[in-house]
C-alpha cells in the first residue's frame, strides 16, 4: 500500500478536482475552460487516484467506464455534429434556452460536442496512465539495472 498522506490527498483532492473539471467544462463556452482543459483536469484527478491506490483499485473505483471512454466520446462528438444535419448543415449549432431560478441557461450541440472532446481526452490520458502505472507497479524482469535513486 502507498503512503497514507497520498491516500488522504486523494480522498480530499480527487472529488474537488473532478468538480473543477465539471465546472471548467460548463463555463467553457463563455469563460476560460472547455472540454479539452476539463478533460485534462479529470485525467489529473484520476491519476491522483492511480498514484494513491494503484491501478487495480482505480479500475475498481471508476468501474467499467474507463476502457470504452474513447469510443463513447467519439460517438458523442459525431452525434453532436450530426444533429445539425436535421437543421440543414453538418456541425450547425442548435440551441435551447431555459430559465432556472432567474438565470438563463443555454444548452446546445457545441457543448455536446465539447463533452465528446472531454471524454476522448480523459480516455486517452487514462489509457496511457493506467497501462504505464501497471507496468511500473510490476517489477521489471531484471532488477540488476533498476534505477536505485529516487
Amino acid at each position: 500500500m502507498t503512503e497514507i498522506y497520498l491516500r488522504l490527498v486523494d480522498r480530499i483532492l480527487t472529488p474537488i478536482l473532478l468538480l473543477i473539471a465539471i465546472f471548467l467544462f460548463l463555463r467553457g463556452h463563455d469563460l476560460p475552460g472547455g472540454g479539452f482543459i476539463a478533460g485534462l483536469v479529470a485525467a489529473a484527478a484520476i491519476e491522483l487516484t492511480i498514484l494513491a491506490l494503484g491501478s487495480a483499485a482505480t479500475r475498481d473505483r471508476y468501474g467499467p467506464w474507463l476502457a470504452p471512454l474513447l469510443g463513447i466520446g467519439l460517438m458523442v462528438a459525431v452525434t453532436a455534429a450530426l444533429i445539425g444535419m436535421a437543421g440543414g448543415g453538418f456541425f450547425l449549432g442548435r440551441w435551447i434556452q431555459f430559465e432556472v431560478a432567474g438565470e438563463t441557461l443555454k444548452l446546445g450541440t457545441p457543448q455536446l460536442f465539447d463533452l465528446g472532446v472531454m471524454l476522448v481526452v480523459v480516455g486517452m490520458a487514462v489509457t496511457y496512465l493506467l497501462r504505464l502505472s501497471e507496468a511500473a507497479e510490476t517489477p521489471p524482469p531484471s532488477t540488476k539495472h533498476r534505477e536505485t535513486r529516487p
Binding site: 467553457g28 463556452h29 463563455d30 472547455g34 457545441p110 460536442f113 465539447d114 472532446v117
Partner: peptide, 12 residues
Amino acid sequence: RGSNVVNVILVD
C-alpha cells in the same frame, strides 16, 4: 453564442 472565442472556434 459563446464569449470564449477560443472555445467557440474549437467546438463550433
